[in-house]
């Protein structure tokens, strides 16, 4: 039996987001949306996390950080890109310091669109991420 679907712990990292998606990610934890219903815990620590939730796009400086965080997460793990910037670079895609979406660095499993992504779609993304997590576990088992 697998417990991954019942206990997805997330790590949120703000790559170069404008705060809009970050705040919506946090809002998911709060009374109106309450993702803890699904066993979701915002860990704040890559070593505890199953799902890496990234908002904002990759830039010159945070590219290493994103890689480090992903490497420190124990397997199985999935990446959810939240918001237009994380998906493709969004409105800032052509700014000189932006390299593009998170998929420039990491294998992204779920893309959550929106500027800013709404809490409902973030929750939806996390639930889709759980599915990916299950698949990865089965593959490695």
């Amino acid at each position: 039996m697998s417990f991954f679907s019942k206990s997805p712990w997330i790590l949120h990292y703000d790559a170069s987001s404008c705060n809009g998606c970050d705040i919506e990610v946090l809002a998911c934890l709060t009374p109106l949306y309450d993702v803890e219903r699904f066993g979701v815990v915002n860990t704040g620590n890559p070593k505890h996390a199953d799902i890496l939730l990234i908002t904002g796009s990759v830039n010159e400086r945070n590219i290493d950080i994103i890689e480090n965080l992903y490497r420190q997460m124990p397997d199985p793990k999935v990446v959810v890109a939240v918001g237009a910037c994380a998906c493709s670079g969004g409105i800032f895609a052509r700014a000189y310091n932006i390299q593009g979406g998170i998929d420039k660095v990491l294998p992204v499993d779920v893309y959550v669109p929106g500027c800013a992504a709404r809490p409902e779609s973030i929750i939806d993304g996390v639930i889709k991420g759980i599915g990916a997590l299950e698949m990865k576990r089965k593959k490695s088992a």
Partner: peptide, 11 residues
């Protein structure tokens, strides 16, 4: 055996 947590910084 693996890096320790350093707030995302390289170790």
């Amino acid at each position: 055996m693996s890096d320790f947590y350093a707030a995302g910084r390289p170790v």
